[in-house]
Simulated scan of single mutants.
Amino acid sequence: MSLVMFDYDGVIADSLDVHVKSFLAAFQENGYTQFKTAQDIINLYEDNVYRSMGALGMSDEDIDRVLASYKEKQDRLLEQIELFPHMAEFFREISIYHKVYIITSNTADAVLRVLDKKGIIGVEKVIGFETEKSKIKKIRLAMSWHPELKAYYVGDTKGDIYEGRQAGTVTVGVAWGWHSPDKLKESNPDYLVYSPRELIKILREKA
Results as ranks from 00 to 15, higher is better:
V4S: 09
G57Y: 05
E130F: 03
V114W: 03
I42K: 15
D7N: 14
G119D: 02
A167I: 04
K71D: 15
N106S: 13
Y50C: 07
T104Y: 02
E148N: 12
H179D: 13
I136F: 07
Q39V: 03
E72G: 11
A55R: 15
D64I: 09
T169K: 06
M53E: 05
V123F: 05
D75F: 11
E72C: 05
R197L: 12
L16V: 07
K150N: 07
V114N: 05
L67M: 12
P85W: 03
S2Q: 15
G159S: 01
N188Y: 13
I202H: 06
L77C: 00
D116C: 09
P196T: 10
E72R: 15
E79P: 01
Y50A: 03
G159K: 03
S22C: 06
M1I: 03
Y191S: 03
Q39T: 14
R65L: 14
I139M: 08
E46W: 08
P196D: 08
F23H: 02
L77T: 04
V11D: 10
E79V: 11
L141W: 15
L77Y: 09
Q80P: 01
I12A: 01
I103W: 11
G168Q: 10
V123K: 12
V174E: 09
L3R: 01
D160W: 07
D17G: 05
K125T: 07
D9F: 07
G10M: 07
G31P: 09
A88S: 12
K118R: 10
V114F: 04
L184E: 03
G177N: 11
I41F: 12
D109I: 07
R92S: 14
L77P: 00
H86C: 06
S95C: 03
R113N: 11
R113K: 15
V172K: 08
T33Y: 12
T171Q: 14
G155W: 12
D156G: 14
V100S: 02
D62Q: 14
T171F: 09
T104L: 11
G31N: 02
L184R: 10
H179L: 13
I139C: 07
Y45G: 02
F90Y: 14
M53K: 03
L24Y: 06
S2H: 13
Y191M: 02
K150L: 10
L56W: 09
I161P: 02
N48C: 06
Y101P: 09
P85F: 05
L184K: 05
I200C: 00
K138P: 04
E205I: 00
V100E: 11
E93C: 01
N48S: 13
P147F: 04
L16N: 05
V100L: 10
V154Y: 00
R197T: 03
D7F: 02
Q34W: 09
Y97W: 08
I94V: 15
F23Q: 11
V11Y: 04
I121H: 15
I12K: 02
V11T: 07
N188W: 10
F90T: 09
P147I: 05
S95A: 07
Q34F: 13
D40P: 04
S187N: 09
Y194N: 14
L112R: 14
P189L: 06
E130H: 15
D190F: 10
Y194V: 00
A142Y: 09
I102W: 02
L203Y: 00
D9I: 06
S180D: 11
